[in-house]
């Protein structure tokens, strides 16, 4: 837990640094290439800087949520890394509520059907009385 808190602190500092560099005029604070994402947002309209920093911090949370849901931690890290800041912000804190596609549950449907059939038969035979429409 201690390590985790320490980690958080480092992340927070990095986030502050991000905010600072983002508010400085371009061409002054950064030495490397201007990333494509940044040019896209500049060209088509800016995204909220605070939201970007929050998303940056949310990455770790989402990764932990995946791990808690049984995803291998290394795998969870890769899943989160493939998402943009906005995409991470959209799912943060909601992994247990967002719709998850599971598809046709054939086995489940057959089991449910068989149970239903047994109950209908036992109802007719007068052993059970689950369905009011079966007298």
């Amino acid at each position: 837990m201690k390590i985790f808190e320490h980690c958080r602190c480092a992340l927070a500092q990095l986030a502050i640094a991000l905010v600072l560099t983002a508010t400085l005029p371009m061409g002054f604070a950064q030495a490397g290439l201007v990333p494509t994402d940044e040019v896209i947002t500049e060209t088509f309209g800016t995204s909220d800087e605070r939201a970007r920093v929050e998303a940056f911090l949310a990455r770790e949370d989402v990764q932990e949520q995946f791990a808690a849901l049984g995803v291998d931690p290394a795998e969870a890290a890769q899943r989160v890394a493939a998402l943009s800041d906005d995409e991470v912000a959209e799912i943060a804190g909601q992994l247990d509520q967002l719709p998850a596609g599971e598809g046709f549950l054939v086995t489940a449907a057959i089991v449910a059907g068989v149970i239903l059939l047994i109950l209908v038969i036992t109802d007719i035979a007068g052993i059970t009385n689950v369905f009011t429409f079966i007298k």
């Binding site: 995946f66 849901l69 049984g70 995803v71 992994l95 247990d96 719709p99 998850a100 596609g101 599971e102």
Partner: peptide
């Protein structure tokens, strides 16, 4: 995702 028994978008 095993804990959700499904796949998120």
């Amino acid at each position: 995702t095993p804990g959700r028994r499904g796949t998120l978008q």
